[in-house]
């Protein structure tokens, strides 16, 4: 056996390589079956970047369908609630140039809104419940309805079906709990002290201290 190998080096090499090819092929084949990823991972990835407002402004019945459409080659600039941030993230993921938002589908708005039902006007028709894509409205036939503000995505879909027009989209007031620091203003702005509140107290020693 050893003799055979030492006498026919070329054949040995070929056999070894062939054997390895078979083994790894088998392993890869096994792995592709065993660790098969369920669902379409690219659709998942796109879907996680979309804002999940489920408003349908993109022209699809929800964020996931739009994610699927993007995976099939649709434009990535059709989501107004996501705005430019989402477009940039999608462009980054798909490695394409980031376009600007297609205004045909709506405008990006900085102000988040949440639906509010004027409860004494609600006639309990359940139409808004049927329209809400995320089950954010509570109520029963002929009973007053109300929106669970925490679950509302602000998609606007419940406003139109209401026969007595008692749903308002009200802007979410900024709250001290979700206030965040802003990036420092440019020097020019700070010189005019527009943004004085944003400056941490002292970043520098005073002239006098330095002198001392």
């Amino acid at each position: 056996m050893i003799d055979f190998f030492s006498q026919t080096p070329l054949l040995t090499a070929l056999l070894t390589l062939g054997g390895l090819t078979l083994i790894f092929g088998a392993i890869l084949g096994f792995a592709s079956v065993k660790f098969k990823v369920e669902g379409d991972p690219i659709v998942e990835q796109i879907d996680t970047l979309l804002p999940q407002t489920q408003c349908g402004q993109c022209g699809y019945p929800g964020c996931r369908p739009y994610a699927e459409a993007i995976a099939n080659g649709d434009q990535i600039n059709k989501c107004p609630p996501g705005g430019q941030t989402t477009i940039n993230a999608l462009a980054n993921l798909l490695d394409v140039e980031a376009p600007t938002l297609d205004e045909e589908h709506g405008e990006e708005s900085d102000i988040k809104t949440v639906a509010y039902i004027r409860e004494d006007e609600c006639i309990g028709c359940t139409k808004c419940i049927q329209a809400c894509p995320v089950d954010a409205i509570l109520g029963a036939a002929k009973q007053m309805h109300t929106v669970i503000a925490g679950e509302c995505t602000g998609c606007d879909l419940c406003v139109e079906p209401c026969p007595v027009d008692c749903i308002d989209m009200i802007p979410v007031e900024p709250d001290i709990a979700d206030w965040i620091w802003q990036l420092p203003a440019s020097s020019a702005e700070r010189a005019s002290e527009l943004n004085a509140a944003n400056i941490i107290a002292t970043d520098r020693t005073s002239d006098r201290d330095e002198a001392a």
Binding site: P51, Q52, R64, E151, I180
Partner: peptide, 20 residues
Amino acid sequence: RKLQAEHLKSDRARERFEYQ
């Protein structure tokens, strides 16, 4: 942190949407 919070919220919205 804000993005994370938004992400959590959008995850919830997705779940609820898919549940529906």
